[in-house]
């Protein structure tokens, strides 16, 4: 096993250019779970010591979150808690406290699990990811980043550097819920994050990001279109379910059934839309 521990991004990118087979590792909370993490021949690029990729800063357009920022930092960060409460919530729902102290947002994205807790929120928030390489940074809308099961659009020689999250509309409903069998430390059976602003006929923002109901974290575009295309009120439940059915590809697996996932996904959508159904709108002061 080999271990490279650069201190600067340039150094890390140079190492990666030289050894394209290096496995990037940040907090290690996914990599180390693999029983063969220490096997002979494995070569790791430890990013933990790389300066400048950790922390949250504010720009006129939104928040910039360094890929090495930990779940604990995100869950408690005043800017995140103020502007992106669903991300603070998903960070606090990721693993156990000890895991949150090490696990990074970048790692959660790059591990590319369809069940990851934070990607649905980043999808709902319309985030962009910034990939660094010797050729310079490259911005990719996060909704286009996951290309297949456990696959990403990362190119050889690239390191995920930052995540840009635009400010949500002022009077928006931020929704996050993770459904696992137990209340903590579970891998989700269904996860939903939603960012909803406006009202029927005049929606400013309708985005639903899901975990665990397809091969990748997904943005439910058909569902959103059905809602925004309805001028008066919300679509009927059957219409929502039909649209959601086109978005998702739920499967039976060791953790749950396709039927349960479809049903709970729909129930969560209804819960996210409840403010409009019950009161005709979402009141941010609520």
């Amino acid at each position: 096993m080999s271990w490279y521990a650069p201190r600067h991004l340039d150094e890390a990118l140079a190492l990666l250019a030289e050894h394209p087979g290096l496995i990037p590792i940040a907090g290690g909370t996914d990599v180390m779970v693999d029983g063969n993490a220490g096997a002979a021949g494995r070569e790791y690029l430890s990013l933990a010591g790389v300066a400048g990729l950790r922390g949250v800063r504010e720009t006129p357009a939104g928040l910039v979150i360094g890929a090495l920022t930990t779940m604990t930092e995100i869950g408690r960060h005043p800017l995140v808690c103020r502007d992106l409460p669903a991300l603070a919530a998903s960070a606090r729902a990721t693993g156990a406290v000890a895991i949150q102290n090490r696990a990074t947002l970048g790692g959660n994205i790059m591990n590319a699990s369809p069940a990851a807790d934070n990607p649905p929120v980043l999808l709902a928030y319309g985030a962009l990811v910034v990939l660094m390489s010797a050729a310079g940074p490259r911005r990719v809308p996060y909704a286009r980043f996951h290309s297949g099961y456990k696959e990403t659009g990362r190119r050889p020689g690239e390191i995920l550097g930052e995540i840009l999250v635009p400010f949500p509309p002022l009077r928006a409903h931020h929704y996050f819920r993770k459904v696992g069998t137990r209340r903590a430390q579970s891998i989700s059976k269904v996860g939903l994050a939603a960012l909803l602003a406006g009202r029927p006929g005049a929606w400013e923002c309708v985005r639903f990001g899901f975990a665990s109901i397809a091969a990748t974290p997904i943005l439910a575009c058909a569902l959103a279109a059905t809602i925004t295309d309805t001028d008066h009120g919300l679509p009927r439940d059957e219409e929502l379910a039909e649209a959601l059915g086109r978005d998702i590809a739920a499967r039976d697996d060791i953790r749950s059934t396709a039927d349960y996932r479809r049903r709970v996904a729909m129930n969560l959508v209804r819960e996210a839309l409840a403010p409009w159904r019950l009161q005709g709108g979402f009141d941010a002061s609520n």
Binding site: V33, R182, R183, A184, Q185, S186, R255
Partner: peptide, 10 residues
């Protein structure tokens, strides 16, 4: 990860 026992939160 897949055989779920209760944690203190449950």
């Amino acid at each position: 990860t897949n055989y779920i026992i209760p944690t203190s939160a449950d």
